[in-house]
Design a protein around this nucleic acid. Sequence first.
DNA 1: TTCATAGGCAAGTCACCACTTGCATGTCAA
DNA 2: TTGACATGCAAGTGGTGACTTGCCTATGAA
Lengths: 97, 97
Amino acid sequence: MGEGADLFKALGDATRRIILDELTERDSQTLFEICGRLTMKHGLASSRQAISQHLAVLEEAGLVHTRRQGRYKFHHLDTSPLRAIVERWPARREEPS
Amino acid sequence: MGEGADLFKALGDATRRIILDELTERDSQTLFEICGRLTMKHGLASSRQAISQHLAVLEEAGLVHTRRQGRYKFHHLDTSPLRAIVERWPARREEPS
DNA sequence: TTCATAGGCAAGTCACCACTTGCATGTCAA
DNA sequence: TTGACATGCAAGTGGTGACTTGCCTATGAA
């Protein structure tokens, strides 16, 4: 019931968080571009299928949107669902001593 | 390296998120108080040990701090680690159409 | 068409994690 | 001290999820 479980599940994996980092640096990438950049710049050697499944989870959470163009599928970052987190548990009024 | 994995792991469980909800409503509760309120108001029948382990995870993530007083241990909410999430993946400049 | 590229689907394996179970520790009251 | 209460610790179990493996579809160029 709008509990947002998909969002927290998506953020729960370290590889998916790095994918979000990569899309923050350079938005609108294809699956193969993301695979290459994760290997090169972030030092992780994940398979194409693994990254594809991660992107599906991120899309379910609303953090990534896709756009098909011929045989390419571009992935776009959407950080707006993250606002629900800080809104669910607001900052306290009084600051600690 | 300050990657914050503990934070996302803590937020990844639905019961722990409800515990944060409960502490948002009423801060500084003991383990037994939290157990009782989760059963009454949120309808989940988790054991004392389960809740205790959840609170330990939340404390590792810095979301909950504890204060001992005699045989009681009070749990305090700290939402400040959540800011790191929205700061890691900032909102885009342009708004979507 | 043929071939290479970009991506999708499904079943199987393995490790982690939530939860239980049982016992132990420590505090306070009678 | 005895007993009840509040919490802690540690081993074992089951289910979920990340990853692999293998095959399939679709687009575009020669």
